[in-house]
Nucleic acid binder design. Structure first.
Lengths: 208, 208
DNA sequence: GTCTATAGCGAGATAGAC
DNA sequence: GTCTATCTCGCTATAGAC
C-alpha cells in the first residue's frame, strides 16, 4: 500500500499483512479486531491505519492476495496444451493441495467472502469470462470420443476435483477431531491425498 | 427455550429461530445483528432477549439444531445393516444433498463454528466416539476381501463422499456465478448431483 | 514512521410501561 | 408477551506529540 516494493521495505507492511491473514482467517472480517492484528504484528493500532487506512482496505488487500494466489495459476494449469487429461488432473490436485497447505487462510477466506458478498463473485467472474478454458473442454470432449473416459460434463469434473481438494482443508479442525489426527498426522494425510485424490478421480472417469 | 412444544406455540419463538438461521448463515455470528434478526422475524430486539437471553444463546440454539440435523441421521444411515455398500453410498448422497438443500444454513454454520472454535469440535466428537461405525468399517473390509472394491481406507471414502456432497452447497454463490446458474438451474444441478455424485464415487471404488 | 490518548458511534443488553 | 427508551461498553478511526 505504502511501499511499492521499491523503497526500503521496513518489514512493517509485510508483518501487518502476515498477521492480518491469520486473524481474518480465524475470525472472519467482522470477528477480527484491529487490536489483535496489531498485537500479532507487534505494532499498535494506529499504525495499521497509517498503512491501510481502514479495516476494510486491509481486508481487501488480503482478499485480493488470496484471489490472485488461488485462481490464475489453476486457470493456467487447466489451459495447458500438450498435457494429457490424466496428467493434468494429477498436476491440478497436487498443486492445489500444496498451495492451500502453504496458505491456510485462502480457502475459508474465499468461501466466506463470496457467501457474504455474492455481488463480489458475480463481478469477479463475469468480466473475466472463461473458467472452463476451451482447451480443457475440447480435451474432455476428445477423450470421450476416443472412448478413454466415461461421459461427464467438464464443469462437473472440475467441481468434483476441487471439492475433493478443498473440503478437507476447509474443514481442517473437524477432520482433526473426528479422526483424532495430530497436526503432524493431518499434514501427512494431506500429502498422501495428493495421490489418493487424483487417483480416485481418474479411476472414476477412466474407461477400462 | 420458553415453549417446550407443550404450551400453545405463539409462533414467536419459531419465527425468531427461522430468522436467526438465515441471518447467522449469511453473516456469521459476529457479523449478524440482533436488529436484523428482529426485523426479519417481524418483532423487536427486546423480544429476542426475552426469548433467548443473549446473542450467544440464540446462536447456540441454532447451532445445536444444525448439529442434530446433520450428524445423527447420517451416522444412523451409515450404521445400517442389510444394505449393500453401494446402496448405502447412494442413500447417503441422496439424503445429505437433500437435507442440506432444505436447510441451507447448516453447512456453513458447522464449518465456520468449528474453525473458529476448535475446542467445540474436540468436545463434540471425543465423548461420542465412533464416527466410523464398526458396521461400516467391516462392510468396507469385507468388500475389499471379496474383490468387489479397490483398496481404500473407510475414513478416506467417507471424506470423499462428504466432500463431493457438501462443497457445492457450501459454495453456492461461487457455483452460481462461475457457471452462470440461476437459482432454478442451481437447484436442478443439485438434484442431478444426487445421482452423478453417487455414481462418480461408486465407479471409482468398484472393481470391474 | 511510530506512538499515546481520545473522539464517536454502533450494537448488545436492560429497565420499565403497557 | 411485547413494546419504547436508554444504558454501557467495545471497537474503529483520528488527532496530535515525538
Amino acid at each position: 500500500m505504502v511501499n511499492k516494493s521499491k523503497t526500503i521495505d521496513t518489514g512493517t507492511e509485510t508483518k501487518i499483512l502476515r498477521a492480518a491473514k491469520e486473524i481474518f482467517h480465524v475470525y472472519g472480517f467482522q470477528g477480527a479486531r484491529m487490536q489483535q492484528i496489531a498485537d500479532k504484528a507487534g505494532i499498535n493500532k494506529a499504525l495499521l491505519h497509517y498503512y491501510f487506512r481502514d479495516k476494510k482496505k486491509l481486508f481487501n488487500a488480503v482478499f485480493t492476495d488470496a484471489i490472485n494466489k488461488f485462481f490464475p495459476p489453476l486457470l493456467e494449469l487447466v489451459s495447458e496444451k500438450n498435457v494429457s487429461l490424466f496428467d493434468k488432473i494429477r498436476k491440478f490436485v497436487d498443486y492445489q493441495i500444496q498451495m492451500l497447505k502453504d496458505n491456510t487462510y485462502i480457502a475459508s477466506f474465499i468461501v466466506n467472502e463470496f457467501n457474504q458478498n455474492p455481488d463480489k463473485a458475480v463481478k469477479l467472474f463475469s468480466h473475466e469470462g472463461k473458467y472452463l478454458p476451451k482447451v480443457f473442454i475440447d480435451q474432455v470432449t476428445d477423450a470421450k470420443k476416443k472412448g478413454l473416459i466415461i461421459d461427464i460434463e467438464p464443469f462437473e469434473l472440475i467441481i468434483n476435483i476441487v471439492s475433493l481438494n478443498v473440503f478437507p482443508i476447509l474443514n481442517k479442525q473437524i477432520m482433526k477431531s473426528m479422526f483424532s489426527m495430530s497436526e503432524n498426522k493431518y499434514n501427512k494425510f494431506l500429502d498422501s491425498r495428493k495421490k489418493t485424490a487424483a487417483e480416485f478421480i481418474i479411476r472414476s472417469i477412466r474407461k477400462k
